Amino acid sequence: MRTLTAQMSNNGGAWRLYVVLYGVPDWPTVRWARTGPVPTVAERRRALAALGYEVAPGAVWSWTEDHRDPDDDSTPVVLIAAVRVRGRNGDAA
């Protein structure tokens, strides 16, 4: 089963979820108007479905943090969540 990566990020503003499609200029994206709380797993599932994707079987969300300036750990943190997804028809759409 071929899968893609979906990511959700927040750099201090609104949350956004997107499916990473290399070589494509505009990735499928959903934005939440709020800055908090973090979108629930159910909200993320609905957002992915609206984009035509679903979490791949057995995949779980993982979280990491980065900095706006990777060379300066005093800059604000950017939270990034990622999960493997597939097209709703069972492949990598």
Score class of each variant (00 low, 15 high):
residue 11 N to L: 01
residue 45 R to V: 15
residue 61 W to I: 07
residue 45 R to C: 10
residue 57 P to V: 02
residue 68 R to M: 15
residue 51 L to D: 04
residue 91 D to F: 11
residue 64 T to C: 05
residue 67 H to Q: 10
residue 11 N to E: 07
residue 8 M to W: 02
residue 4 L to C: 07
residue 75 T to C: 08
residue 89 N to S: 15
residue 61 W to H: 11
residue 4 L to F: 06
residue 92 A to Y: 10
residue 24 V to G: 00
residue 81 A to F: 12
residue 72 D to H: 00
residue 73 D to F: 00
residue 23 G to N: 05
residue 81 A to N: 10
residue 79 L to N: 01
residue 5 T to C: 07
residue 74 S to V: 11
residue 55 V to D: 02
residue 29 T to C: 04
residue 67 H to G: 02
residue 13 G to W: 02
residue 74 S to Y: 08
residue 51 L to P: 03
residue 69 D to W: 11
residue 5 T to W: 07
residue 55 V to H: 00
residue 83 V to A: 06
residue 8 M to K: 00
residue 45 R to I: 14
residue 58 G to S: 09
residue 74 S to T: 15
residue 21 L to Q: 10
residue 69 D to G: 03
residue 78 V to N: 03
residue 92 A to G: 12
residue 81 A to M: 09
residue 61 W to G: 05
residue 70 P to H: 09
residue 89 N to L: 14
residue 36 G to P: 00
residue 90 G to V: 07
residue 93 A to G: 15
residue 32 W to S: 04
residue 73 D to I: 08
residue 86 R to S: 03
residue 21 L to F: 01
residue 82 A to S: 15
residue 39 P to G: 03
residue 66 D to K: 06
residue 24 V to N: 02
residue 10 N to M: 02
residue 44 R to V: 08
residue 35 T to W: 00
residue 17 L to H: 03
residue 31 R to G: 04
residue 70 P to S: 11
residue 80 I to C: 04
residue 15 W to S: 04
residue 35 T to G: 06
residue 20 V to G: 00
residue 65 E to A: 00
residue 35 T to A: 09
residue 65 E to V: 10
residue 69 D to V: 13
residue 32 W to N: 04
residue 78 V to F: 00
residue 17 L to A: 10
residue 48 L to T: 12
residue 92 A to M: 01
residue 14 A to C: 05
residue 46 R to P: 05
residue 56 A to C: 10
residue 74 S to G: 10
residue 85 V to D: 05
residue 73 D to H: 07
residue 88 R to M: 14
residue 44 R to T: 09
residue 12 G to D: 09
residue 61 W to A: 08
residue 6 A to V: 09
residue 6 A to M: 08
residue 39 P to T: 00
residue 14 A to H: 02
residue 7 Q to R: 12
residue 76 P to W: 08
residue 8 M to L: 13
residue 6 A to S: 12
residue 83 V to F: 07
residue 20 V to S: 10
residue 59 A to Y: 11
residue 8 M to G: 04
residue 87 G to N: 05
residue 30 V to A: 04
residue 89 N to F: 06
residue 66 D to Q: 09
residue 54 E to I: 08
residue 62 S to W: 03
residue 1 M to W: 11
residue 4 L to V: 07
residue 50 A to C: 11
residue 79 L to M: 05
residue 72 D to I: 08
residue 44 R to E: 11
residue 20 V to T: 09
residue 6 A to T: 07
residue 91 D to G: 14
residue 79 L to I: 00
residue 22 Y to C: 04
residue 82 A to F: 01
residue 7 Q to E: 13
residue 2 R to A: 15
residue 84 R to A: 15
residue 38 V to D: 05
residue 57 P to L: 09
residue 91 D to C: 11
residue 20 V to K: 14
residue 6 A to L: 10
residue 74 S to M: 09
residue 66 D to S: 11
residue 51 L to S: 07
residue 33 A to M: 06
residue 48 L to R: 02
residue 50 A to D: 15
residue 50 A to N: 14
residue 60 V to A: 13
residue 86 R to F: 01
residue 3 T to A: 14
residue 10 N to S: 13
residue 86 R to P: 01
residue 31 R to C: 03
residue 49 A to S: 15
residue 13 G to V: 01
residue 23 G to Q: 06
residue 60 V to W: 08
residue 27 W to E: 13
residue 66 D to W: 00
residue 79 L to W: 01
residue 35 T to D: 06
residue 37 P to L: 03
residue 21 L to R: 12
